[in-house]
Design a protein around this nucleic acid. Sequence first.
DNA 1: TTGACTTACTTAACATCGTTATCTAAAATG
DNA 2: CATTTTAGATAACGATGTTAAGTAAGTCAA
Lengths: 228, 228
Amino acid sequence: MGSNDRRQREKLELRTKILDAARLLFAAKGYEAVSMRRIAEAIEYSPTAIYVYFADKDTLVRELCHEDFGALAGVFRELTAVKDPVERIRRIGQAYVEFGAKYPNHYRLMFMTPKPFHDIEEKDLATRGQPDEDAYAFLRATVVEAIAQGRLRPGVKPNADLVAQTCWAGVHGVVGIELTHGKDKWIDLGSVEERTRVMLNTCSHGLFTETNQARKPKSAAERKAGKR
Amino acid sequence: MGSNDRRQREKLELRTKILDAARLLFAAKGYEAVSMRRIAEAIEYSPTAIYVYFADKDTLVRELCHEDFGALAGVFRELTAVKDPVERIRRIGQAYVEFGAKYPNHYRLMFMTPKPFHDIEEKDLATRGQPDEDAYAFLRATVVEAIAQGRLRPGVKPNADLVAQTCWAGVHGVVGIELTHGKDKWIDLGSVEERTRVMLNTCSHGLFTETNQARKPKSAAERKAGKR
DNA sequence: TTGACTTACTTAACATCGTTATCTAAAATG
DNA sequence: CATTTTAGATAACGATGTTAAGTAAGTCAA
């Protein structure tokens, strides 16, 4: 029946209206500043109407973040074009920091707040391990590629998770410091960009071998190993 | 007058009683779980009595953290004994992660929560730049030492703040991931210890030169440069 | 000793929050 | 047309941080 469709469409409309109103408040003021009553005021409904669409405040805001994470996923997807895995890792890190700096409140909630309980939902389980969807899996896959190409610095344990998590921790730390101390005056923080660059250099040199070194096409070793 | 002294002593007693009660709640359950009313209940006073001693909840808990940070400062102080600056940096990082893992709630508040406004108090200004008191200054001073000894990896900009902040960001990221994703199931996290080790190795090799390399006592370069 | 002032503390209240229970009215369904 | 489902509203509960106003005791000068 057509009217049924219309009702569902209207319902979806209000749902996105709620999300949009919440997004504005959340982006501007953070989690605490978003209250059900203020969202309700913005959309001109009663506060409890929101509970028809979202179980509670937390799932609402998480849903919001989940949506906005499409942006980051999109950037990551584009990075598939970067052939050199180590260079791709650098780009991933750069994109990650840019995202954190641009959406501090989203970042805080997604990466700096322990998830309550419903951490593993069907959705999460479904996208688990697919690089296009799961940002960590994408990083990990790139590390696997780098390891396969023998790009690990000698002495580094060839554990993809460990290496990926170290890269992640590096940029995560840069974002974290920026978000919580970026406006402090007692510490002499440079620009995020520069700190990111130094961190990426550190990870490159600390975990991997130089691109040139491994790719030098005229080395004796390569000529010996090259099959193609 | 003696009775006046007694009164002041009693006042201090209640103050520490408040802090102790708050400490228990805070360490166990975190900032949100600490409510003025519950503290009041624990110390058997009315909730508003606390406001005689602390301006608001935030300053109370920050004061608490400030006290407990003596532990970290103490560990740092002991590290002065480590002669090699790069090794000392490693130890600083290790102590930092251990502190974060041991006192997650303290860590969250001090390093993962933007300070409201009163960031710069007299106390902070007074201890500013003294390595014994200011953990960051201690790290920075060690980096300065390392740079002075020519231990920076070629290509790394000899900016003490930049290098120090990169080391800090590295371990800060390790702690951050541990605190917010340590109990997640969707990600394959190894032990904090191992991740810390890899991160410290990464920073060592990414930012500094090998201890051996710079200290090898029999190299021609050193014999030429050595004055003593 | 007395009277004014100061300090420590309590009671009551305000504004806000997330959330639930209960109700109403409209739409979908048989 | 009667029944059931649904969307949404009103009112309320229990909790929060914080403030205003009151009280009782201590300090101190005359």
